[in-house]
Design a protein around this nucleic acid. Sequence first.
DNA 1: TGGCCGATATGCT
DNA 2: GCATATCGGCCAA
Length: 181
Amino acid sequence: MRFDPTLFEGPTLEAARRLLGVTLTYGGSAGVIVETEAYAGDPASHFVTRPKTGAMLGTTHGLVYVYRIYGIHQCVNFTTDSQGPGAVLIRAIEPVAGLDAMRRRRGRMPDTNLTSGPAKLFAALGLDASLHGRPVTQCFGLRAPESPPDVVAGPRIGISKATDLPWRFHVRGNRYVSRPR
DNA sequence: TGGCCGATATGCT
DNA sequence: GCATATCGGCCAA
């Protein structure tokens, strides 16, 4: 199905859920989004913890937000919600095309480890910081699923604030999520 | 200018 | 399960 880009204008939680199952294409590689996290104006959001660089979460939607963490890793978000601060972190994809290029960029390892984490998929797809601030639809190919996947919600990973919010979403039973049950 | 912390991944025990 | 690499962002001083 055709992807409806007005999804980015709406509430962040809905965008995080509905991005699951979407096929993301970049360069010669593609993967189905199987894990996301929502960040709004909550205490864990970069809108709060990085008020300068995270300010764009409050003023934009439908843009790529790239951040660096622990010095070496980079992750990608899509900004959301025309009414307030919001972004969806893309945490994992299931590879469906360009597997050879992904293996080349990630090194020798099992395929299930290629893209099962935000920094892993960033590297596997060959993304870079120059995408920051550009329209999502201009950088990526987006294809909505024929039918919505079975979604599981739970607490977000790797944060120390607002750990009670169930704002992590993943496709039930998928082997490419960063932390399977 | 210095120090703290972090939306992680990996390798070792 | 646990240590740790590695450095940008931010703020206090």
